[in-house]
Design a protein around this nucleic acid. Structure first.
Lengths: 241, 241
DNA sequence: CGGGCGTTTGAACACCCTCAAGATGGGTGG
DNA sequence: CCACCCATCTTGAGGGTGTTCAAACGCCCG
């Protein structure tokens, strides 16, 4: 909500010297600048260039959102390790949605000028950009379908299952569950529900021994039944290749 | 719902010999094949190649959708003159969503092999593809935000206003309204509502002298108030450049 | 004329929201 | 160590929005 506070890292590269296991950014390797570290609660990036920057999220959680006049906030997507941020803004002459850090975060800015210059020469880069965009679009479609759903329980289950699958691809989750900084209020903002009702849905899911979400940990106790409940099909989440 | 029935046109080109005024497809000119005409109610395209085809919609209305187990259908987006269909499927190794014709329709298949070959040589083509994808993504985001909204009235108003703006870009609408093949049931499927409730919302909007939707015609009687009502911001819909 | 489609209306109920208040836990400062 | 604050989670009661089920109407078309 307030200002921008990006603190450039003193560390030269990301921990371990290698990229995290995100599926999409292999082709972006040569365009990475030094990582930047942003504090929990801060926004990215609304810079002087009107948001025309792109990043790869190395570590931590973020979300993209829109607000409307009433002041309420709709979360559009959560971003985790390996996701790209604002990639579209480079090409369509439009600013991307704003991003908020749910945790302290490490991001790597993409060297835009270099990337754009290289698009002219190396077509496989373009293909990679396009593929990343298409995958983003598929996830968006899935969220849209989830919001079209009528019952709150199915929406909650679907979102938590989807995040689990995405986290599994980067080794941040198992079939049993994962840790996350999400609060019930975040689920509510993403799903078009009130936090009070999200609370009741979670209680109901807990009482049915389907899942628990407590203390930053999501645990699936009956994955089969959950998948059944919300008609979840994980095939849209896949590693590149 | 049933089979595929694409009837290749006897006419050699589209009426008038020029492309309709869609904003996106100028760069695709050299990849267009002969137009095909598809009947109202038929699906596109689910071909033997698993849906890996892309088209430009020349004339008519279509929608993309997903079904879930209950058999209910969620409309993801409506497609009008100048929109591209299935463009993403070419790059991500995934089939696109299925499309249904709301009217008789004219589409132009894109020459995929040629397009892909040209991507290797002509970078501005890649840029154009990327831009088209980004615009699609922005529209999707807007739908998602619309579904996150709480009141049915705002959802309906937003959707009808958005379609009006998109139709204006291709000279199929004025500020006063437009003609469309949409039924109340289609609005319901797109907005996650029942058709009964859509009916009541439309009645209420009519009684408030805000808009009417009747006999295939959408009329805005108080655009200002409508925009206010649903917090509509048309800036995300813009002609390319 | 009959049938299909789209629209309209009614009644009853379920889901989810609003408003309100209390409980829990972590962090800060005295 | 306790007091306090803040954010988050939890619970209750009541009402509005939107659903389900059911039926009837107008219209176009064969």
């Amino acid at each position: 909500m307030s200002g921008i506070d990006i603190r450039v890292a003193s560390r030269a590269a990301c921990p371990g010297g290698r990229l995290p296991g995100g599926p999409h950014q292999a082709a972006f390797l040569e365009f990475l600048e030094a990582p930047q570290y942003v504090l929990k609660g801060k926004e990215l990036c609304r810079g002087e260039d009107g948001g025309k920057r792109a990043y790869v999220l190395l570590e931590g959680w973020m979300y993209s959102y829109r607000t409307w006049q009433s002041g309420k906030r709709q979360i559009v997507d959560f971003k985790i390790r390996g996701d790209t941020l604002g990639l579209g803004s480079l090409f369509a002459g439009k600013a991307s949605l704003p991003y908020v850090c749910l945790t302290d975060v490490a991001v790597v800015p993409l060297k835009m000028d270099l990337l754009q210059a290289r698009l002219e020469q190396a077509p496989h880069i373009a293909a990679s950009v396009v593929e990343t965009l298409v995958r983003e679009e598929i996830v968006l479609e899935e969220h849209l379908i989830n919001l079209g759903r009528h019952t709150a329980t199915a929406r909650v289950a679907h979102l938590l299952l989807e995040l689990g699958e995405r986290l599994r691809l980067v080794n941040l989750a198992t079939a049993e569950g994962y840790n996350s900084p999400l609060t019930q209020a975040h689920l509510a903002m993403a799903l078009g529900l009130t936090k009070i009702h999200v609370n009741r849905v979670l209680r109901s899911l807990r009482e049915q021994r389907l899942l628990t979400m407590w203390g930053g940990a999501v645990r699936f106790h009956d994955r089969r039944a959950l998948i059944e409940l919300c008609d979840f099909d994980s095939s849209y989440i896949e590693p590149a290749q």
